[in-house]
């Protein structure tokens, strides 16, 4: 047992956690953004897949992983637009639209993989993103091991979280966005373009989540595989709730979730391992506990999931 505890505090477990957390954190921040603007974003899983697929495909064609990252951003924005089209313009229930998008993208990426590469399992290997080491950090012993050498999107995530926090909570644009999520009627009254802001937010959120997919495909690995997001989008949704609809909270929650994953992977190598499945279960159980207010009061934006102008029929779930 004490062996397992030791693993948790090993520095390379934490390094692995940082790497594993990145896709979840990016998708979670995407969830934070869109939910703060009142749009429930169940579709994060689909955006991760779209980003991962587009990143690998364009890298495969061009040989340049940076173009792959750009393609991921474009694909994510496209999926964000699709969610906007259905959830805003066509007034579909947000949850249903998100579920539909996830199934659509799971099917589409698997289909395209077979049409283009003739394989249902994995794509051919492509050039991955390089690893960067940060000049000053790499000379400091512990920090060097922890954040010394990662794919660029890992650093991007660490910078994006505080940046998004500033935008959301310290700028007029962020205030407007949050006002839409809390009280769209009031936002409309003071002249904030509700739908346009929501669309823009979904574009940004789509790009962020798809970057998570790009990290998964080109940062961690160098190929696309069927359903490679494997539920990380749903975990990101949980991280967003766990992190109290706050970008920094989302990042920290993603780190915590990823730590359980990293620990689980390392524990397998011990002579007396803990049961894998029970460790893997922790993030999901924690989220249920947090949502039930067992750990801390959590409150979603007041107008989350509502259409504006309101629907005529009352009581839609």
């Amino acid at each position: 047992m004490s062996d397992a505890w030791d693993v948790i505090f090993q520095i390379n477990t934490l390094t692995a956690a940082l790497r594993l957390a990145t896709p979840i954190a990016l998708a979670a921040m995407a969830g934070t953004l869109s939910e703060r603007a009142g749009i429930v974003n169940i579709g994060l899983e689909g955006k991760l897949l779209a980003g991962a697929w587009a990143a690998v495909y364009v890298t495969y064609v061009t040989g340049n992983p940076w173009l792959g990252v750009l393609a991921a951003v474009a694909a994510g924005m496209l999926v964000g637009l699709l969610l906007g089209l259905f959830a805003i313009r066509l007034r579909a229930d947000h949850v249903v639209a998100g579920v539909g998008i996830n199934i659509l993208l799971l099917g589409l990426t698997t289909w395209l993989m077979q049409v283009i590469w003739g394989s249902r399992g994995t794509s051919p290997t492509v050039t991955p993103l390089p690893r960067w080491s940060i000049p000053i950090v790499r000379d400091i012993p512990v920090l060097e091991e922890l954040v010394g050498s990662h794919a660029p999107l890992v650093y991007f995530t660490l910078l994006a979280a505080p940046l998004l926090w500033v935008v959301l909570f310290r700028t007029p644009a962020g205030l407007r966005l949050r006002m839409i999520g809390e009280h769209p009627e009031a936002a409309d009254t003071v002249g904030i373009p509700v739908h346009r802001t929501q669309y823009l937010t979904l574009l940004a959120a789509g790009a962020l989540a798809a970057l998570g997919g790009a990290q998964l495909a080109l940062g961690d690995l160098a190929w696309f595989s069927q359903n490679m997001s494997a539920g990380r989008g749903y975990m990101a949704l949980a991280a967003n709730v766990f992190g109290q609809w706050n970008p920094i909270g989302s990042l920290l929650a993603a780190l915590l979730f990823a730590l359980t994953d990293a620990v689980q992977m390392r524990i397998q190598t011990l002579p007396n391992p803990w049961p894998t499945e029970l460790v893997q279960m922790l993030p999901y159980l924690l989220t249920v506990l947090v949502l039930s207010g067992a750990v801390k009061r959590s409150r979603p934006p007041a107008a989350l999931g509502r259409h504006y102008p309101p629907d005529h029929s009352a009581g839609a779930p």
């Binding site: 259905f86 313009r89 007034r91 249903v96 199934i103 659509l104 589409l108 289909w111």
Partner: peptide, 25 residues
């Protein structure tokens, strides 16, 4: 033909059937 096309169709059905605005359109 890869059967995953049916997964695509399934996702689209969910989207289309859930969008009251589509009918109005």
């Amino acid at each position: 033909i890869p059967s995953d096309l049916m997964t695509v169709v399934q996702g689209l059905v969910i989207l289309f059937v859930a969008a009251p605005g589509l009918v109005t359109l």
